[in-house]
């Protein structure tokens, strides 16, 4: 099932499907390792609207809601 990364709950693991952004930030997300097929784990989210802490390629990143919504995953 295709979902956005922001739809996952704490502790979930999924594989990145695509980054749905055409701007410079989309490229930055890819550079940070959100390439198709990469496993990503949600460590925690402060709230439904808050930032999400994810683990990708051994790094802990905090990403904002709108960035999280642009990352599609295969859950």
């Amino acid at each position: 099932m295709i979902k956005q990364i922001s739809d996952l709950t704490d502790g979930d693991t999924a594989k990145v499907l695509s980054v749905n952004r055409k701007d410079a930030l989309g490229i930055r997300l890819l550079e940070l390792g959100f390439t198709p097929g990469t496993p990503v784990r949600i460590i925690r989210s402060v709230s439904k609207k808050g930032p999400i802490e994810v683990l990708i390629r051994g790094c802990r990143l905090m990403i904002g809601l709108s960035e999280a919504q642009s990352i599609y995953i295969q859950a």
Partner: peptide, 9 residues
């Protein structure tokens, strides 16, 4: 409207 926000923990 929008600004990017990606930080490393």
């Amino acid at each position: 409207r929008h600004f990017a926000q990606i930080n490393e923990m």
